Measured scan of single mutants.
Amino acid sequence: EPLWIRPDAPSRCTWQLGRPASESPHHHTAPAKSPKILPDILKKIGDTPMVRINKIGKKFGLKCELLAKCEFFNAGGSVKDRISLRMIEDAERDGTLKPGDTIIEPTSGNTGIGLALAAAVRGYRCIIVMPEKMSSEKVDVLRALGAEIVRTPTNARFDSPESHVGVAWRLKNEIPNSHILDQYRNASNPLAHYDTTADEILQQCDGKLDMLVASVGTGGTITGIARKLKEKCPGCRIIGVDPEGSILAEPEELNQTEQTTYEVEGIGYDFIPTVLDRTVVDKWFKSNDEEAFTFARMLIAQEGLLCGGSAGSTVAVAVKAAQELQEGQRCVVILPDSVRNYMTKFLSDRWMLQKGFLKEEDLTEKKPWWWHLRVQELGLSAPLTVLPTITCGHTIEILREKGFDQAPVVDEAGVILGMVTLGNMLSSLLAGKVQPSDQVGKVIYKQFKQIRLTDTLGRLSHILEMDHFALVVHEQIQYHSTGKSSQRQMVFGVVTAIDLLNFVAAQERDQK
């Protein structure tokens, strides 16, 4: 057995438009009618409502009807409940999964919650491996369901041993009777949507819809739904939504950006999952974080739909894509998950301010006199920076000697690579993860907040409520011999709460 199987392995699926269902090699399930009293909570997966979006479509000038398939009504709160249950049931049916076995899954959280929910009911041990950027709410729900959680670096490539995929496979090879159901490759993922989600949409719309818009992560949702719609409703256009920084969209030119990270969760990847059939997507749109969270908040405030950030991405694209539809036509959007997962993220004004998705003037509360002053007023001194090749031991000596707790790590040209902190280095040394002679590049981390000289002290204040420091950066445009230009970030300084307090105190003292 291989040590790991690539999540982007070539698909062996034989589905073709027009091929009889009787030739399918898979076990198919028909939607079942729910009894009045459910035998367990797993029976509350599927049969989610279709809700008309009344205000947002009109606000953006849509002539067509805009409908939302509300997947956050599933038992675990997301569309991923469907595939989690289906993968477990299919693994039980073919004898792969037996009582007492362990389920391991690399996930952005929602599939993990679905699997942990099913594992709690069915009696399996469950280990979820997820990147650090995923919300604390997801972690809390997983723990409450009895799952064990392993976190991995957000910026690790999918084929790196440190990625959530790599760590999951390492655990599988170490733990007896453990299984990775593997949402990236498992046919049960798109089949769950082909058999149930798509049929529900067709039934709820009486077979009449002209466009379907869905955000894409593993691709199982859009693949399964689109294949069924292509068979039953061939005139329906399928629109895929991919965040900026991901590479799922086609044509490839759409993916060209210097951005590699994004805040919206559960969609987009740096590889093409095996289950994603991009041939059934008629057109791709890219979405960005700001519009995703703005539209998610709009869905909550104006439509009462308590959905997550990827739902915002989907609707932001839908109001663009559906401009081509006329009166009497219908566009369906998939709202994948609930706001429950993001209470401390985009639902929080403070978080939105820190990330730059909300401006101070958007909030009406009274601010102190210094709130709208610029960061450049602080008069920061030149920063202490270190090269990635310097040793951890030497870096600790320098920081202690100069009285700093942290320093930016830059390359020879001064471009920011990340940050090192005294606390992080000492804990890594004590844990045996690094040696004093190791290069400081081994303990770089990139989960820090950046701020510009033109940003306000109010925004800085919000950042420092949650973080010990902020890195002050400025952009530099560099022209190359080819005539092309590129933008790079340079370090201007490091600012802490002490710097802000000293500035405010000094100004008030001078005024007296």
Rank of each mutant, 00 (worst) to 15 (best):
D242M: 00
P243R: 02
E244D: 10
A249D: 00
T257F: 11
T261D: 06
V264D: 01
G266E: 01
G268W: 00
F271G: 02
F271A: 02
T279M: 14
V280M: 10
D282N: 14
F285Q: 04
S287N: 09
A292I: 06
T294R: 10
F295T: 10
F295Y: 13
L305I: 11
L305D: 00
G312F: 01
T314G: 15
V317L: 12
V319F: 13
K320D: 03
L325I: 05
Q326F: 08
G328H: 08
C331P: 01
V333G: 02
V333E: 07
P336W: 05
S338V: 04
V339D: 05
Y342G: 00
K345Y: 01
F346G: 02
L347D: 00
M352A: 03
G356L: 06
G356M: 08
E360C: 06
L363P: 15
K366Q: 11
R374M: 11
G379Q: 10
G379H: 10
L380Q: 12
S381C: 13
S381P: 14
A382C: 04
P383N: 08
G393F: 15
L399Q: 06
G403F: 08
F404I: 12
F404C: 06
D405T: 09
D405L: 02
V409I: 13
V409H: 00
V409Q: 07
E412F: 10
A413I: 11
G418L: 01
M419P: 14
V420I: 15
V420A: 12
T421C: 05
G423L: 09
M425K: 12
S428V: 15
K433F: 15
Q435N: 12
Q435V: 13
P436C: 15
V443M: 11
I444G: 15
I444M: 13
Y445R: 08
F448W: 13
I451A: 12
I451C: 01
T454G: 07
T454Q: 10
D455M: 11
L457D: 00
I463R: 07
E465W: 01
E465P: 07
M466N: 03
D467Y: 02
A470K: 06
L471K: 03
E475F: 09
G483A: 14
G483M: 15
R488K: 15
V495R: 08
T496A: 15
A506F: 15
Q507A: 13
E508W: 09
R509G: 12
K512W: 03
